[in-house]
Amino acid sequence: MRIGDRRPAIDWPTAIEQGAPPTLAVWKFASCDGCQLTILDCEDQLLAIADRVRIAYFPEATSGSVDGPYDISLVEGSITTPGDRERIAEIRQASRLLVTIGACATAGGIQALRNGADIEEFTSIVYAQPSYIDVLADSTPISDHVTVDLELRGCPIDPGQLVGVLAALLNRHLVRPPTTSVCVECKATGAACVLVASATPCLGPITQGGCGALCPGFDRGCYGCFGPKEHPNVTGLRRQFAAIGVDDDATDRLLSTFNVAAFADAEQAGGSEP
């Protein structure tokens, strides 16, 4: 049994209750489309998915669309404009189940690097006509704006997790991916610990698994694209980084990539004790 089971009762779509194909929509906000492409990368399983759902809106795969309501909405990207804010509210309204996919949607993405900086200065440097730009000061996750039924982490998401979650949803089961560390997968797959064996800074111990320890499997440190695990002890890892010669600035940069705000917030909150 997974954490978070004890939430408001799930409003299961009638189609799923009756074993009929539910409608599926895929939505895009500020993002690189990589997570949508991951869906197309599911190759072997893509046809099986297409067999079990009615794809109602999927800009990467088809130009056709139908009006809502939708049984399942997959949402990629972060909220960065006032228009986004209105559109996500409409999508939530039209969707029975809403699943966010990828670090942009779950944590604001790399574009959240601008949060806390001077957005007007940025636009005046980048754009010839900054007045055309109507943008929010912060890039924020979908869950800051609407209720999210399930989050799939990662930059990009893991295709196996996506297929597993969809298969479970069709079986009337909202399965929440494990919240344990990347280390758990590192040890299970037999990858060497780069932090212990070569003093390579690695965010694995404070990062949620789900990628199958992809980077450590190639002797690279984890850069935290799945975001913080439950109870991440960011300060504890920072101390160890200092001990192997990684200073606080370098650690801050390491923590400030695809889940910029999430690690900082976790460290602020104090990770190890709830």
Binding site: S181, C183, P205, G236
Partner: peptide, 11 residues
């Protein structure tokens, strides 16, 4: 305060 609860020891 030091433990990362990462599970390396148990693995």
């Amino acid at each position: 305060e030091r433990c990362l609860a990462c599970g390396n020891c148990t693995a």
